[in-house]
Design a binder for these strands. Structure first.
Lengths: 159, 159
DNA sequence: TTAATATTGTTCATAGTGTTAACTAAATAT
DNA sequence: ATATTTAGTTAACACTATGAACAATATTAA
């Protein structure tokens, strides 16, 4: 009896495991599609869009700071900035208080692009919520938080 | 009064939108970290791992079929297969019924790798569920399904 | 049956994302 | 004053991916 229940529970867990894996993969795929779409819509490689998105709310950023926020090597940031600056979306100025540091800021053109991108992202995430009723919104968000917490716990075990 | 309620609802929606966007980003980041980890653990580029994962359950695959499943160009598949075959994880044979077609199958070494990878993925997704109680498992999965459905609906609107 | 067309897979050129190591210049600590 | 640390750049490399041109083979139509 107990044995059968364990069997059944094991089967359910196996089924749920597969289900979970598949759904997560589908969601990640949707997000990747969205990145591609944004990249095309805004005419910039996604890495440059991600970089632009760091600025709203901050006047200046340093290469080091951007590298930390994007979680990439500083050399990668240098290259992304070369591109953004070449396209007149950003400028590099030397920090007057420390000549090693470059202060990066957006040009008006860059600010506009960042704002458009921000609006677009707000819009599609808003549309996501509009697909749901009030209760569903709360549930989805809280269950996603649960999942994120679980993922971080499992990540700890892994490393 | 009604006005105030609308304001409040709008604020809530804005807050939820931000929240949703951030959590999704964190979850996607976790998944990317996992891909990197798997790549290192199994000593293969992630694209090759993804390719290996297509085989369990299918004896032979064609370049075209793999390209469709991975959602990449055929030329990309050719390169991935060159690598896998160079490492003795797969072989190419000409389809006896259509000389244009190459039938790709895994070597025993490739099958073993694919199985190890499958087990590992089952394990970590199982561990994810073990972080939760019975009710939470059901809720997380059903809310993820809701989210996936919403994402696909919004994607339709976008294109 | 031959000629035109379509399909399968490869090669090549190109672009994008990312890393590490070596380096320059500037600031700090000894 | 010298040694060390920090900030950013450069260069070499690896991985992911695309599209166009191409060769070989199949299929369709004349």
């Amino acid at each position: 009896m107990n044995n059968i229940n364990n069997e059944t529970n094991g089967d359910l867990l196996n089924y749920q495991t597969m289900r979970l894996k598949d759904i997560i993969a589908e969601i990640v795929q949707c997000c990747d599609d969205r990145k591609l779409y944004e990249s095309q819509k805004f005419g910039l490689p996604y890495s440059e869009l991600k970089c632009l998105m760091l600025f709203p709310g901050e006047r200046y950023l340093t290469v080091k700071g951007i590298a930390e926020k994007l979680q990439v090597a500083k050399s990668r940031v240098t290259k992304i900035l070369d591109c953004l600056i070449g396209k007149r979306f950003a400028v590099r100025i030397v920090d007057p208080t420390d000549a090693r540091v470059k202060l990066i800021s957006l040009t008006p053109k860059g600010k506009q692009k960042a704002e458009e991108l921000e609006n677009f992202q707000r819009q599609i995430h808003g549309n996501l919520l509009l697909q749901m009723n009030n209760q569903e919104r709360k549930n989805v968000i809280s269950q996603l938080e649960l999942l994120r917490t679980a993922m971080e716990a499992v990540k700890e075990q892994m490393v």
